[in-house]
């Protein structure tokens, strides 16, 4: 299967690779996985007010999973939280011309955005750390 030029571009030069302090109050972290292939993706956002000012990701998986998360971080940077919630996996599929067998990679990226936002919101609610993991899991579904 041949990767599209856009996938190759993100794969060769992934944007926003890295990590943030997951304990910082203005950082939301989402970790999601694809049971179809065992890929795992971490996406983090830094929020000021209601705007995502920075985003980082780390993905262990195929080229399409890396490209999907790279694109996702590019898209959400500078967006308001509510706008970022609107991003659909189908938008990613379209932008990267992903073939049907790689659609789950885009689902993973959408889940990761939602999980990171949910984690961030949860932190702002000031609830206990113990309940956090559960909330994050729910948010990723």
């Amino acid at each position: 299967m041949a990767y599209s030029d856009k996938v190759l571009d993100h794969y060769n030069e992934p944007r926003n690779v890295g990590s943030m302090d997951k304990n910082a109050k203005d950082v939301g972290t989402g970790v999601v996985g694809a049971p179809e292939c065992g890929d795992v993706m971490k996406l983090q956002i830094q929020v000021e007010g209601d705007t995502i000012v920075d985003a980082k990701f780390k993905t262990f998986g195929c080229g399409s999973a890396i490209a999907s998360s790279s694109l996702a971080t590019e898209w959400i940077k500078g967006k308001k939280i509510e706008e970022a919630m609107e991003i659909k996996n189908t938008d990613i599929v379209q932008e990267l011309s992903l073939p049907p067998v790689k659609i789950h990679c885009s689902v993973l990226a959408e889940d990761a955005i939602k999980a990171a936002i949910s984690n961030y919101k949860h932190k702002q609610d000031g609830e206990t750390v113990g309940a956090e993991a559960e909330k994050q899991t729910e948010g990723a579904q």
């Binding site: 996985g33 049971p35 179809e36 993991a133 559960e134 994050q136 899991t137 579904q141």
Partner: peptide
């Protein structure tokens, strides 16, 4: 596998 896709954090 997709029905039960969510693993514990």
């Amino acid at each position: 596998e997709t029905d039960e896709r969510q693993m514990p954090q």
